[in-house]
């Protein structure tokens, strides 16, 4: 049995050549090998959304995804949304709308929101709620989270029309 295999992983635009156990999950590779601890180790059963990252723009639970199967795809984490040291408008909206309390669910939510708004720039409130239904927030900031996503959607839309 091969204990480690060479893989190539593109994370936040950077290519990493790694030597990992084939049974390693993407969440563990991101955290333990690459030091990207924004994706959180929480329920590790795909029930909380705290480990959400994007694979080719799609939100997935990195606790249920083998790293070896994530090769040749673009992986984006919460850290990767920051551009030139500036937080993404979604991250900004979460902070300014009081959607961040303990913050453990926040990176996953921010990433899921990115996927939502990329696909669906003007989501209805129902669509926002359904899109984030796989994300637990025990601090109970759901109302603020919804408001943050709506605000981020408005801001992104304004940017696009150049307001």
């Amino acid at each position: 049995m091969k204990q480690r295999v060479p893989i190539s992983l593109t994370v936040n635009g950077e290519i990493h050549e790694l030597f990992i156990p084939p049974w390693q999950l993407l969440l563990d590779t991101l955290r333990d090998e690459l030091g990207l601890t924004g994706a959180k180790r929480c329920c590790i059963e795909g029930q909380c959304g705290a480990c959400t990252v994007l694979i080719d723009g799609k939100p997935i639970n990195s606790c249920l995804y083998l790293t070896i199967e994530a090769q040749n795809q673009e992986i984006v984490t919460a850290e990767g949304l920051v551009e030139d040291g500036k937080p993404h408008p979604i991250q900004k909206a979460f902070v300014e709308r009081g959607a961040v309390q303990c913050g453990f669910c926040t990176p996953g939510l921010v990433v899921a929101t990115k996927a939502l708004l990329d696909q669906n720039p003007n989501p209805t409130e129902d669509e926002i709620r359904i899109a984030l239904s796989g994300h637990l927030c025990r601090c109970g900031a759901y109302v603020q989270i919804t408001e943050a996503v709506m605000a981020a959607a408005r801001e992104t839309a304004q940017k696009e029309v150049g307001v």
């Binding site: 919460a78 937080p87 900004k92 902070v95």
Partner: peptide
């Protein structure tokens, strides 16, 4: 601490 929580830092 919202910022560094939202960025995963």
């Amino acid at each position: 601490d919202g910022w560094i929580k939202a960025t995963g830092e």
